[in-house]
Design a protein around this nucleic acid. Structure first.
Length: 433
DNA sequence: TCTGGGGTCCTAGGACCC
DNA sequence: TCTGGGGTCCTAGGACCC
């Protein structure tokens, strides 16, 4: 039995991590094949930072998250194509990918917009065969390239996926379970600790201070020592690197504990009126998310700041408890508007604002406060349900609060946005010929 | 000129209690 | 002069993820 762990215990698990290659760029290329082979980046909101890079751009040494304006010269020299992010398109493509992947295992955890875990333990065929089929199916049904990493724990599966992405010799599928342990350790000796899931730049620096610089180094550090010096989380990471599973697959996303909606503005905003419109708009989005997960909020907050890269800097936030938990956007918007007036200082140029909701509870379990009018509360829920229904039918923003303003004065810049190929009728590509 | 958005979890430290 | 120990709860901030 090559497929069991050490002392004849439970069979070793087969966890796969499937990750789309350069997801946003690949989505754009599916609908515009002329982008194939050219250096392409996708930019964040406001065309601010680089959030996705094609392999050609990575080869030029462009790091993730760099501000686009700093790349002007390089972009001109190499003809880099920049696209504004098109989340309607990426969200829709993500749903298609996840639907295809769900056919390969009954146990799926959608981890992010472009990656998911599948539990392949006990399913027929080798992991290598399964991985190849997965790649082929996603490519055929969505046009997107993916890589597959397989191992006994989630953290190792992430590393196996990293190997599959970095070294073309794997042809997109790497299974640690089928490799001799020494081989895996040699690979880990070549990767910095920061390639490990859960180790960022800060932890990487602190680990280096203790002489731990590679993934193998972390694997070989006694977990108890990591707990003492760092945290339980890092101890778990080290255990996972040693094949001890500490992180379960979460098939059902737990309800959010906090909901946030914020934006940087295309141009700085000085006026309280324009800020108020933005804040009401953000709260409408946040309250929609709140109701979609069937929750009510006990606390609502608002924050704003000026450009953090320029003087004068100013940044404030408030948080206000609600009399009783609610999902009524009118109440939530009024609450944060009151907070906004408290933190607003005239004479400043604001670059970003946002709202958040916390102390979330299931809506049907909310305990009415002493002063609640049950009839009013029923009317409120009926009204919110009607608003959600209309917006779902006629598109977001069909029914809005007047406080959002008619023409938003705070809209982001998106100079390079591609068409919403899959979600807007007028922008669906039509075959030429 | 131009620097994203939305989450989670953990820890430290203070207040308070017995 | 001597000045406990352990627990909970809360919040702010750090670190991480994509």
């Amino acid at each position: 039995m090559g497929d069991s762990s050490g002392g004849g215990g439970a069979p070793r698990r087969r966890i796969a991590l499937i990750d789309c290659n350069n997801f946003y760029v690949s989505c754009e290329r599916v609908f515009d094949p002329s982008l194939e082979g050219r250096p392409v980046v996708v930019l964040s909101n406001n065309d601010g930072c680089v959030v996705a890079r094609s392999p050609e751009v990575k080869a030029l040494g462009v790091p993730m998250g760099v501000p686009w304006f700093k790349l002007a010269e390089l972009a001109r020299r190499h003809g880099i194509v920049a696209l504004s992010s098109n989340y309607a398109l990426y969200g829709d493509m993500s749903r298609r990918v996840m639907a295809v992947l769900s056919r390969f295992s009954p146990v799926q955890e959608v981890y992010s917009i472009d990656e998911c875990f599948l539990d392949l333990t006990g399913l027929p065929g080798s992991a290598l065969e399964q991985g190849r089929e997965i790649r082929e199916a996603v490519r055929r049904w969505t046009g997107l390239p993916v890589c597959v990493g397989v191992a006994a724990t989630k953290t190792l599966a992430k590393l196996a996926n990293h190997a599959a992405k970095k070294d073309p010799a794997w042809e997109g599928v790497c299974d640690f379970n089928e490799l001799p342990p020494e081989r895996v350790e040699r690979m880990m000796a070549a990767w910095p600790t920061t390639e490990i899931w859960g180790v960022g730049s800060r932890l990487g620096e602190r680990l280096a201070g203790l002489g731990i610089v590679t993934a193998l180094g972390l694997k070989q550090t006694p977990p108890g020592q990591l707990r003492r010096h760092f945290s339980l989380t890092l101890e778990r990471t080290a255990l996972e690197l040693n094949g001890v599973s500490c992180l379960a697959l979460e098939e059902i996303a737990p309800p959010r504990q906090q909901i946030l909606c914020s934006r940087s503005f295309g141009a700085p905003i000085p006026s309280l009126e324009a800020l108020s419109e933005a804040v009401v708009h953000f709260m409408s989005r946040a309250a929609e998310k709140l109701r979609r997960q069937g929750s009510a909020a006990g606390t609502a907050g608002v924050f704003l700041h000026t450009n953090p890269f320029r003087e004068p800097r100013y940044s404030r936030g408030t948080s206000s408890p609600l009399a009783s938990p609610t999902a009524d956007v009118r109440l939530l918007a009024a609450t944060v508007l009151h907070g906004l007036r408290e933190i607003y200082r005239p004479g400043l140029l604001y670059k970003k604002a946002g709202v958040w909701l916390s102390d979330l509870t299931p809506q049907e379990k909310t305990i009415p406060s002493l002063f609640d009018d049950p009839a009013a509360s029923r009317r409120s829920r009926a009204l919110m349900a009607a608003v959600d229904g209309l917006n779902q039918r006629f598109g977001g923003g069909a029914v809005r609060l007047l406080g959002e303003g008619v023409e938003p004065r705070w809209r982001a810049r998106t100079e390079h946005r591609s068409p919403r190929y899959t979600t807007r009728l007028g922008e669906i590509p039509v075959a030429r010929g």
